[in-house]
Amino acid sequence: MAQRALTGRTQAPKAGRTAVSGCLALASMSMAGASAAQFRRRGTTVEPFHPERASALVITGVNSVSRNPMYVGMAGVLVAHALWRTSWVALIPVAGFVVLIDRAQIAAEETALGQRFGSEYEAYCASTPRWLDRRSLARAVDMLVPSWRPTTA
């Protein structure tokens, strides 16, 4: 709603923009959904306001690409919507979301998870980015195409 309020009415987007923004939204929702499904399979909470209730540290699948794939997915949907609206101004709420989640929610979650899982969580933090970085792309490709890397003899 903030994006629409900032940009007002927009013209109908061109087919290419709709396709790109749709693909980004689908990929983002898939990332968030896959993470939530992993949490449920492991029997741990997806409730963000009670990270102390976590019963398992989920570090595989999309959680090896980012420590916060559900938030990355939410931000990706907002970016897709800004792209679809064809507006740089529509990125302002994305930036606000990322800053708020990063500083308030994720910081609290990391404190709780560090207390709960100790050195295992510290090792996970050292090997997996909070959001996304160059390691994320390589891990995502590894998940999608496991044999893409050339073998060494």
Rank of each mutant, 00 (worst) to 15 (best):
M31I: 12
R53K: 15
T111K: 14
E110G: 11
S55K: 12
G73V: 05
S87H: 08
F39N: 05
V58C: 01
A107T: 15
L91Y: 07
L91N: 07
C125W: 06
F49K: 08
R103T: 13
S119F: 04
V62Q: 10
N68C: 07
E120W: 00
G16V: 14
A112Y: 01
G33S: 14
I106M: 02
L83H: 10
E110K: 13
T86R: 14
A126F: 00
S119L: 08
P51S: 07
R53L: 07
A108K: 12
S127V: 04
F97E: 02
G16M: 12
G61A: 06
A80I: 05
T128C: 06
A90D: 03
H81K: 10
A56F: 04
M31S: 10
G96V: 08
L26K: 09
E122Y: 05
R116Y: 00
Q38W: 06
V77Q: 04
G16N: 15
H81P: 01
S127N: 11
V77N: 01
A107S: 14
M29E: 15
V77K: 02
M31R: 12
V46W: 07
A112S: 10
Y71Q: 08
G33T: 12
L100S: 15
P129T: 15
P48G: 03
W84E: 10
A37Q: 14
L91I: 04
A54T: 09
T45Q: 02
L91S: 07
I106S: 03
S30V: 13
A108F: 02
M74W: 08
V58H: 01
A95K: 07
Q38N: 13
A82F: 03
A104R: 14
G43C: 03
C125F: 05
S87D: 05
A34D: 14
R116D: 00
A107E: 08
P51E: 00
V72P: 02
Q115C: 11
R103M: 04
P51V: 00
P129W: 09
T60V: 10
I106Y: 03
V79R: 04
G33N: 13
P51I: 00
F49I: 06
A27Y: 09
T128V: 14
A82R: 04
G96I: 05
Y71C: 03
L100P: 02
P129M: 09
L83S: 11
P51D: 01
Q38M: 11
G96F: 02
H50W: 03
G73N: 06
L91H: 05
I106W: 01
T111F: 07
L57G: 02
S127L: 06
L91F: 07
A126M: 01
G22C: 10
S119D: 12
E52R: 11
M70D: 07
A126N: 06
L78G: 06
M29P: 07
S64L: 09
V72K: 05
A32F: 04
T45M: 00
F117I: 01
